[in-house]
Amino acid sequence: MLLVHCPYCEETLPELEFTYAGEAHIARPADPSAMSDDEWRDYLFIRSNVRGPHFERWRHLHGCGRFFNAVRDTVTDRFLTTYRAGEPRPDLSSLKEAAE
């Protein structure tokens, strides 16, 4: 089982308490009606599907209930970091160095 660090509870807890919630840092467009169909499709459905470190949302559903963000390597399933919702994307190169 994966262990996930919740940045609100400040504890590393079993995966079973968490749910995955898709790619992170996808902002809803401020003016949807000004967008073309293709742009709106991209916002709704098109994701980066990266191989390697992936910025993604998780939710501590059976715990504090909060959404937060994580960087997880999709190849190794290793979490490089987790951080609170609303915080900027952490710098990937320093995360990778710290993980090595």
């Binding site: 509870c9 559903l61 059976h62 715990g63």
Partner: peptide, 22 residues
């Protein structure tokens, strides 16, 4: 419960899971 019960201090509490139920 998937949590490490030993890490929950006396006089504390948490929301967690018990056999699938919150």
């Amino acid at each position: 419960c998937p949590r490490d019960i030993g890490r929950l201090g006396e006089g504390e509490g948490c929301r967690t899971l018990m056999d699938g139920a919150t």
